[in-house]
């Protein structure tokens, strides 16, 4: 399914992550997914929360550069070798380019978050 992910621009400096997570904690916002990608000077923190609208408001108020975008969220019941490969093949067969993705495995299966250049088509092919 398509869900909303938040992306926060952070200086690559000590304590910045603790500040952003501190704000979310204080405001009672729970993070469902969290990933960080970095360049030499800055990092992009991507999160999915239980209240994205509120997260955007409070983080903006604290001066963070934040934007939201649509991502495809896949709940893989079948957490077995090769299952991700099937999905990736379907996406690449359609010529969809993956911009970023991350995955994590839980007791009730694996979860995958995909940011792609054509979210709608990507989602459609995976719903089949």
């Amino acid at each position: 399914m398509i869900i909303e992910q938040l992306s926060i621009f952070l200086n690559n400096s000590i304590g910045r992550l603790s500040e952003v997570t501190g704000v979310l904690g204080t405001e009672g916002i729970n993070m469902k997914a969290f990933t960080l990608s970095e360049s030499s000077d800055f990092g992009l923190l991507r999160i999915i929360t239980d209240d994205n609208e509120k997260a955007v408001t409070v983080l903006k108020r604290h001066g963070f550069a934040i934007s939201s975008s649509k991502v495809v969220f896949i709940d893989l019941q079948d957490d077995t070798p090769g299952s991700l490969s099937i999905i990736m093949k379907r996406i690449s067969d359609l010529g969809i380019s993956v911009e970023s993705m991350y995955a994590f495995s839980t007791a009730d299966g694996a979860k995958v978050v995909i940011q792609a250049d054509d979210i709608e088509r990507c989602n459609k092919i995976l719903m089949k």
């Binding site: 992306s7 992009l44 934040i66």
Partner: peptide, 15 residues
């Protein structure tokens, strides 16, 4: 400094 209104969350865009 980045202008926050024009930040689009895209790593390759910033690079």
């Amino acid at each position: 400094e980045l202008r926050p209104e024009l930040y689009n969350g895209n790593m390759s865009g910033i690079l």
